[in-house]
Design a protein around this nucleic acid. Structure first.
Lengths: 352, 352
DNA sequence: ACAAGCTATGTTATCGGCAACATACTCTGT
DNA sequence: ACAGAGTATGTTGCCGATAACATAGCTTGT
């Protein structure tokens, strides 16, 4: 788009028709408003004739309950706040989408609160917003330290929940550890003969990043491999590129385990520019399986994450806190490895 | 993440402290609730002593106005709904983020309504949600036909606005046409000597896609070039790949103008797999400048779009409709061309 | 010095639901 | 045939704010 001039198109002139209330319905049906209210709540003891009159009146007037009034009285709103930052950067719009759908299924709305992570006052302001807007609960969709501490402070006022991103290291029986998550990537590389690995991690302030790094380290040890070192990025392709490009000399790792696909993309470009062929000379594996990963050059071996399911699961966890009900089980599929062409056999006994 | 078990972490036990009301404040200050209300609205005629008492009471009690009650009485909520779908696909989580920030600046909340574009009933349901939740207005963040028609129906009840995506063809003086947007891409290719172009478009149901295609066609004509044909994708890298891979024979175009960066990525892979070198044999240009585009192989020549600014601008347009006020001008920078290595000189007079 | 006119503040009604209590009506048993 | 129990429905008050109207207290003019 060019300028704001062509940004959009105004709707027709707006005369908002005043919506019908239970009182309107009651009058139309010739009953009291309370009868209507009872009907709406599914109260059983209403005579069929009365019920019919109410149904018809509701239908005729196109009545829709006003949730604002309802929350005022009940003190309980039907909206949950989603604290986010950098969603566009990190990718998982899928989490937001899943959360929104999950919320709607449960009759809630999802309010997006985009934090400016760099601005400490932003959290303060958002807190004010949350209390003012009477949210039923708050969800943090990115698990940075800043976010976690914000949530901890919010949690004294409203139910709050941090949706962790995939870490590839579930609190699961050891037996499964090697088949999913980062350990599966490491095992895959080990099978291909790689012995010297390098890791490109996300920011240390993200718990997801720390978890992945820990998973990497323990998997390397468990498989009897050697970690040549750890580089840090900020999830962006740019940071992945510079992590490699800024190195004085490439270490003698034959495979790189990268904490997300964007950084893997950047790292691959830097490696190619330094004359390494992928996967002939060096293997690269990522994490997340963003839709583009299958079309990188070469297509990226990575871990598939179902972000939408994660978003939904997070909403249901939060709803359990809000409604003190049982957690509706949303199974989030574990991150499965997707093998593509960016990983290949270790270059072998060739010298240097 | 592994399973729902490690998805997150519950907050501490929640006893929501009942928030103070204007009545509490009034009692503490020894005034009537109306005086408090007047103070909150910035009413001038309050004696300094009274004012002080109110300020202190508010401070002591940590009073925050309850916006639910406020909207009930005033009939005007401070939240706007954002209809979206496929946010994860097109990338512009940035639009959502920008819209959220813009909304907050104006004292509004942004409610996300993720539509399932495939499900016609979803629009119906969302409409019900909107009226129930008493939204001040509705914003469509993706401008598909389905969305536009949904908005048209909604607009009779609440102010509504469609945020068009960049189309590279602003309603601007002709003089500017060639320096920004899709025409700039075409001009760039013409300068490099390309004469035979091909276009990969997005879905025809997206107005942004139609606009880009139209801009492409008229620019090709204006520059005296030849368009070899148009292929259609769905914005995904996958569709870009198959658009090229499914071709029985590659056309004799020397440059491809692709409607977004993801499809360009897929197309580049398919071209390379068919033995074409980029940019030596064929040039590829995209649109959007997603953060990854600079790290494609080769880095992609594309148009830079400021999605966040677009989101904010859309919010302000809508607010103008809601509040019948002047449009607060938010200038969205025009999409500027970013030249990278995916575009190069036409292969020259070499035979086929 | 007192009516008229302001100013600062208080009182009451209202938004649209829900909940508690109130009442009219039906059914049952004796 | 009528008390008592139960059922269907109506009436009133409340959530927390705003709006309209009401009333004290202070100026001002003559």
């Amino acid at each position: 788009m060019g300028t704001s001039a062509d940004l959009g198109r105004a709707g027709p002139a707006t005369f908002r028709v005043k919506a019908a209330t239970i009182y309107d319905v009651a009058r139309a049906a010739g009953v009291s408003h309370q009868t209507v209210s009872r009907f709406l709540k599914g109260f059983e003891g209403i005579r069929p004739e009365t019920r019919d009159k109410v149904v018809q009146a509701i239908d005729a007037l196109g009545y829709r309950p006003n949730l604002t009034a309802r929350s005022l009285k009940s003190g309980r709103s039907h909206r949950i706040g989603a604290l986010t930052h950098d969603i566009s950067k990190v990718g998982p719009g899928g989490i937001v989408e899943g959360a929104s759908v999950g919320a709607r299924e449960a009759g809630y709305m999802l309010d997006i609160i985009a934090l400016d992570a760099l601005n400490p006052r932003a959290i303060e302001e958002s807190l004010a917003l949350i209390t003012q807007h009477d949210l039923a609960g708050v969800l943090a969709l990115t698990s940075t330290d800043a976010m976690t501490s914000a949530i901890e402070r919010i949690a004294f006022r409203v139910p709050a929940y941090v949706a962790k991103e995939s870490d590839g290291m579930p609190d699961e029986p050891r037996s499964k550890l090697s088949s999913v998550g980062v350990p599966a990537l490491v095992a895959h590389l080990a099978e291909l003969g790689h012995r010297r690995l390098m890791h490109i991690a996300g920011p240390d302030t993200w718990s997801a990043s720390r978890n992945r790094t820990r998973a990497y380290e323990s998997a390397v040890q468990a498989q009897g491999l050697h970690s040549v070192g750890i580089l840090y990025g900020d999830w962006s392709a740019r940071s992945g590129y510079h992590a490699i490009a800024n190195l004085a000399a490439l270490p003698d790792a034959t495979a790189f385990v990268v904490s997300n696909d964007q950084m893997a993309l950047g790292a691959m470009l830097a490696l190619k520019e330094r004359g390494r062929r992928i996967p002939e000379d060096v293997s690269v594996v990522g994490t997340d399986d963003i839709p583009e990963a299958a079309y990188f050059d070469p297509p990226l071996t990575t871990l598939r994450n179902d972000f939408e399911a994660q978003g939904r699961a997070a909403v249901y966890q939060l709803l359990a806190l809000i409604e003190h009900s049982e957690v509706k089980l949303v199974t989030v599929p574990p991150p499965m490895i997707v093998v593509r062409r960016s990983s290949g056999p270790e270059p072998g006994s060739r010298p240097g």
